[in-house]
Computed example of a mutant assay.
Amino acid sequence: MHKLHNTPAGRVFDVFNHIVLLIIGLVAFIPFVYVIAGSFATEAELVRRSFFVFPETFSLEAYKYVFSTGTFIKSIGVSIFVTVIGTIVSLALTMTMAYPLSRKTLLGKNLILNIIILTMVFSPGMIPLYIVVRSLGLLDTYWALILPLAINPFYLIIVKAFFQNLPNELEEAAKIDGCSEIGIFWKIVLPLSKPVIATFTLFYAVFYWNDFFQALLYISDSAKYPVQLLLQQIVMLANTKIGEVDSLVEPPEETLKLAVIVVATIPILIFYPFLQKHFAKGVLIGSVKG
């Protein structure tokens, strides 16, 4: 393989690949740079200049408006709580359900898998799910943001495939040493599953952090709004009083939208590098075979 890259054709191919990947990277990166730059610009500059990466006049008006909301800090805490607890709950349920489904000795395994796949193809819909949440008394609680979508069926199938790829010899050796099924799962399977755990920690965390629709459906108490829903309200109701924001203050509408995107995105960007080394490995290992 190394010799192929040393040939003229191989070098041309490498250069072509680098150019294509650089273009794709710029296409993905430059819009976000514009969003950041625009959030620090003035309204007049944003209207006058269609695109820029450095604002002519540095302004913090949009961020001052966002952070002047009395409930903003609390909404950040709500989102952090829902993201952390939701990710832990989702990982625990996904792992503990995927492991027995990966064992050949589980009775009714195919039936359970078919039911799981059925939920991927046919969704019950918003109204039946709302009725279930209301019947369980979860309306206006943080659990309404976690439990209804705690297990992603697609993630579950990938984790199951990952567990199936683990060597059976390890399980057999542990049973000979007198280890129980729970002991095998806790002491052997989970330590070997760091890549897939890191991968779906990121997936679930991004989902819980970005989700506002569940809160829009199930939360009516504004004190329990997650940050995504609050920011949506700030954008939609920019000319009215939100929390402790004075309704007489004219909000910077265009820069406000960009500041909202930055505030909502940066926490995930900070979180991602800590899991990056496990990310690609976890996805590939889990999708080798089902």
Rank of each mutant, 00 (worst) to 15 (best):
R103N: 08
T69S: 14
T69R: 01
I80F: 10
R103Y: 05
L60V: 13
S59P: 11
K74S: 14
I85H: 02
T96H: 02
S59A: 14
F72P: 01
T71S: 15
V82F: 00
V82I: 03
G77P: 12
T96S: 13
P100I: 05
I80Q: 02
L101S: 06
L101Q: 04
F67N: 00
G70R: 10
G86H: 05
Y99G: 09
T71F: 03
S68Q: 11
I76G: 13
T94A: 05
L91V: 02
V89I: 14
G86T: 05
I76N: 14
T71V: 12
L60C: 03
A92I: 13
T96W: 01
L60P: 03
F72T: 03
F67D: 00
R103H: 10
V82M: 00
E61G: 07
I73N: 09
I80A: 06
V66R: 02
T96F: 02
G70C: 08
T57Q: 12
F72Y: 09
T71E: 11
G77L: 14
Y63C: 09
S79L: 12
T94G: 03
T87V: 10
S79D: 11
S75C: 11
S79H: 12
L91K: 00
I73H: 08
V66K: 00
L91G: 00
F81S: 12
K74A: 12
L60H: 09
I85G: 01
Y99L: 08
M95D: 05
G70Y: 07
T57P: 07
S102R: 06
G77V: 11
P100G: 04
R103P: 04
A92E: 04
V66C: 04
K64T: 15
V66P: 01
F81A: 15
T87C: 11
I80N: 02
G86Q: 02
G77S: 14
T94H: 04
I76Q: 13
L101W: 07
G70K: 10
T83P: 08
G77A: 15
P100C: 05
S79W: 10
S90L: 01
A98Y: 06
F67S: 00
V84A: 15
L60D: 06
A98L: 10
L91Q: 03
V78N: 11
Y65E: 11
T69L: 05
S68F: 01
E61M: 10
S90D: 02
E61Q: 12
V66E: 07
V66M: 11
S68N: 11
K74M: 14
Y65W: 14
L91R: 00
M95F: 15
A98H: 10
L91D: 00
A62E: 08
T83A: 12
I73L: 15
K74L: 13
I73D: 09
S90C: 02
M95N: 08
G70M: 09
S102I: 04
F67K: 02
M95Q: 09
T87E: 09
A62D: 07
K64W: 13
L60E: 06
R103T: 08
R103A: 04
V78C: 07
T94N: 06
S59M: 12
G70W: 10
A98K: 08
S59N: 13
A92T: 15
Y99Q: 11
V78S: 01
T96E: 05
T71R: 11
S90G: 02
Y65H: 14
F81G: 09
A62K: 04
P100H: 03
T96L: 10
